[in-house]
Amino acid sequence: MRSQKRRIAVVPLGEVPGIVPKSIAAHILGYLNVNAEVLSPLRHPDYAYDPRRLQYNAGAVLKALESHSFGRYEKVIGVLDVDLFVPIFTYVFGEAKQGGKYALVSLNRLRKGHGEGAFVPEPIYLERAAKVALHELGHLYDLHHCSDSRCLMHFSGGLEYLDRIPLYFCRYCSVFMRDALSRPRHRRSKG
């Protein structure tokens, strides 16, 4: 049964290919049976640019997202086409605070193919973006990384790992996700 009251926002940050947020929203609806809406783009996150690393600080982008009002949406997924980092890591595909409200999906590295200078076909690119988005959404609903390599919540540090994990949750994570989605939606998120 579809959770009618829940709404998830997919919001582009700066310029991103229009099909990606739509594809993410469709996957959320299809896999989790939760309404997902694509919102108008917000400004490009130049405020989060780190000139030393030539990358964008995921923490700063999340903080900026928190300052916007997304009152009717339970969770918000920001989609951006820049290379994201967190201070300890060289890069991240996505970022979300465990049990929080906001997540990010970076498309910057998702186009790359397995050879030097190669690019993957669009369906794979869209599938990668959907995987990262659903994985981060799992964290927003308090799902942990899963040790089962055949689960969407399994940690994938590189593209080859990301391509290896399936586009669905394992039995246990599905139960946790269903349980999280069946809880009353007015519980406050961690931030």
Binding site: P87, I88, T90
Partner: peptide, 9 residues
């Protein structure tokens, strides 16, 4: 620091 996520993993 910084390291790749899979290194920590």
């Amino acid at each position: 620091k910084p390291f790749k996520p899979e290194q920590l993993s």
